[in-house]
Amino acid sequence: MLIDQPIKPDLTLANISVIRGQKLIIDKVCFSVPAGGICVLQGPNGAGKTSLLRVIAGFLPNSAGVLMLGAHLFSPLKSTLPIWYIGAPYGFHPNLSARKNLVQIATMRGLSLPEEDIFHINDFTEQPIRTLSSGQLQRLALSQLCLQSSNQSPALWLLDEPNSALDSSHCLILETLIEDHIRKGGRVIASAHQTLCKHLSPEIIQLEILK
């Protein structure tokens, strides 16, 4: 029997262009991420890293080009592929405690909280979000990636500057987490100023500021 669809299709960006406020900010970006692949977007401020991630997340409409998952058009907000977009603002309500915010997200997505406290959020888990430092906030946001699923396929992670406020030990934890995710067949697209996951030799996409 012929299988015309690979079981783990590539996520492909073909000629993605974005115009915002009559200004071209992303010009014909092409790359693809296989299942178990990682891609790092690099470039100066204003090169469109966040915008590109938001396009893949389905928040920002692209002006030209297509997103494909395997041989099919990929529409992020309707796809069954779980997506985690981790980028500021993180979506937490400032007056609720860190734990409550996390539990809400977990229940809404049908996931359960992990037993292990990977990003060491237990120290501040009962504090309201507004009292957290930016590093703590980022750790809490990344903890969403540790929420456990019983039967979902490995998610697509879209990480916008995931290590910008982390200390070196937590940077290492993040890299281990990413490595683990890739090994399970997940896809990761991240933007980063500092090097991220060098040892995994990710595909580097260099974005430039367009004149």
Partner: peptide
Amino acid sequence: DDYIHGFIEKSAHNAQ
């Protein structure tokens, strides 16, 4: 409030 805190866009991914 939810718009400023980024909750609305995050809930767009809840498949609902």
